[in-house]
Design a protein around this nucleic acid. Structure first.
Lengths: 235, 235
DNA sequence: GACGACCCGTGACGACCGTCATGGGTGAAG
DNA sequence: CTTCACCCATGACGGTCGTCACGGGTCGTC
C-alpha cells in the first residue's frame, strides 16, 4: 500500500488510488513554455516511485500524479488533465491497452505512451489501434523515454523502431476470435472439460478449436500453442 | 541436480558489461562517515538507470557501477569492491541467486540484497541459503529500499516481513531432486518422450516422477503442477 | 441465391497421459 | 543387517488429447 492518502481537494470521488503531486514547476507561463504534465500508471511501486522522482527532476517535466491500477487511469486523467499518460500494459484491474482505449474517448487531449516489459509485436498493433502515440519497452534507456515524451507532447509519435519492423514482419494474428478465446481460457485451467464448462461449450468443440489453433501456430501441444501465442501478443 | 554445468569461465575479462560511475561522493572521509558503495545488477535498462540515478541522489549513497547480466556480477564486484550489491533474480546469464552464491566466496565483504519482482517463498529460502542479507520485492516503496541498504551496510538484515511469514508457513519443497528436475524439464518441452530424451531417462520413469510431483502438489495436470511449483519458487 | 468464413456440434480413431502395482539397485540411518 | 528413502524401469489400465470427417447453423459478400 502506497498510503499516500493526501487527496485533500481532489475533486469528485473520481480518483481513489491517485497520488497527486505538487509539481515543482506549476502551470505558470514561465518564460513562455509550460511544463509537460505527466501521469504515471505502473503497478510496481518501486519502479513507479523511481520514475516519478526522476522525471520530476527533468527540466520541463511535471509528474502530476501516479496510479497503480489500470482502472484508475481514466479517473485520474479526468481530474488532472495531463498532457501525457505513461501506461504500463501489465496492471491489475484493466490492462494499459484497455485503459488507452477508454482514455481516447474520455480524455482525448491526453496523449498515451505505452511502456511495457514485453516487446510483443501484437502489443504494438493493439497499442496503435488503441490510439497510443508512443510505444517503448522497459529495456531502453531513460533518455529515450524523455525524448519520446517530448516528441509525443509536441504532437509527434515515438515508436520503438526495432519493434516496428518485428510487428510488420509478423503480421496479424491468424486465429479466429473464438480460437483466441479458447486458447486464452486454456492458460490457467487444466482439462478440456474445464475449459468447455467455463465457456459454455461442448468439449468436442473446444477440442476442435484447440486443434485448429495448434496447427495454425505450428505447435504440437496446447501448452506450446499458448506459449507462442502469448509471445507474439495474440491472446 | 539439473546439470548446472556452468563452466567457471568467469574471471579473465573480468567486467565487460560493467558501467563504472564516477561517484558524486568519493571515498574520502567526509565528517567521519564514508558513503555506502553500491553495485546494481538488473536487466531492465530503464529500471536500472532510474534506480542508479535515484540512489546516487540519496545522501550517503554512491552507486559505483551497474551491470545487466548475472554473470557480470562477480567480475564487477572484484573490480569495484562495493559495500552492497543489489541483485535482481531474473537476469540473463545466471540468475541473482546463483550470483549471490558465487559472490559469497569470491567477494565476501560485499553484502547482498536481493530485489525481485516475484515474492515467491522459495526465493526467500534460496536467497538466505545463498548468504543474502536483504530481500525485497519490487512492489515496495523506494524509501524502504534505502532503509534496507543502510541496515545491511551496517551489518544488519532486511527481510520483507510479509514474505517471511509466507515462507515459514509454506515450508520447504516436498519434491525430491529428481522430481524437481523432471518438472523443470516439463516446462518448455512438449511430450513426455521429449523430456525423457533430454534427461536420458525412460519415458516410463518420467511419467512416474511426474505423477508423484503432481500428487505432491495437489495438481491434476502436469501443467498445473509446473505452475504451482513455479509460484512457490520450487523449481 | 450461391458462396465462403466462421461457429457449434457429433462420432470415431490412434496416440499420449496419469495412475497403480511391482521389482531391482543404491546409499544413509538405526 | 534391517529399514527406509530415493532412483530407474516395466507393464497394464482407463481416461484424456489431438486429428479427422462430417453435418447443421448464422452472417456478410459477390
Amino acid at each position: 500500500m502506497t498510503g499516500n492518502a493526501e487527496e485533500d481537494t481532489m475533486a469528485p470521488g473520481a480518483a481513489e488510488g491517485l497520488t497527486a503531486r505538487g509539481g515543482v514547476m506549476t502551470r505558470n507561463a514561465e518564460g513562455g513554455t509550460m511544463a509537460i504534465r505527466i501521469l504515471l500508471a505502473e503497478d510496481q511501486t518501486m519502479f513507479r516511485g523511481a520514475m516519478a522522482a526522476l522525471l520530476s527532476l527533468e527540466p520541463g517535466f511535471e509528474v502530476v500524479g501516479d496510479v497503480a491500477r489500470g482502472d484508475q487511469v481514466v479517473g485520474a486523467c479526468e481530474a488532472l488533465r495531463p498532457d501525457v499518460a505513461l501506461l504500463d500494459i501489465e496492471m491489475p484491474g484493466i490492462d494499459g491497452l484497455e485503459a488507452a482505449r477508454r482514455l481516447r474517448t474520455a480524455v482525448p487531449e491526453t496523449k498515451v505512451v505505452i511502456v511495457t516489459t514485453f516487446g510483443r509485436p501484437g502489443y504494438l498493433h493493439a497499442a496503435l489501434a488503441a490510439g497510443a502515440r508512443g510505444f517503448l519497452i522497459k529495456d531502453t534507456p531513460i533518455e529515450q523515454l524523455s525524448a519520446a515524451i517530448r516528441k509525443v507532447a509536441d504532437g509527434g509519435q515515438a515508436i520503438d523502431p526495432a519493434l516496428a519492423v518485428a510487428a510488420l514482419s509478423e503480421g496479424a494474428s491468424p486465429l479466429t476470435p473464438r480460437e483466441k478465446d479458447v486458447l486464452a481460457a486454456a492458460r490457467g485451467h487444466g482439462t478440456i472439460a474445464d475449459i468447455a464448462r467455463g465457456l459454455h461449450l461442448s468439449s468436442g468443440t473446444v477440442r476442435n478449436h484447440l486443434s485448429a489453433a495448434i496447427q495454425k501456430l505450428g505447435a504440437r501441444t496446447r501448452a506450446e500453442a499458448v506459449e507462442t501465442a502469448e509471445g507474439k501478443g495474440w491472446l
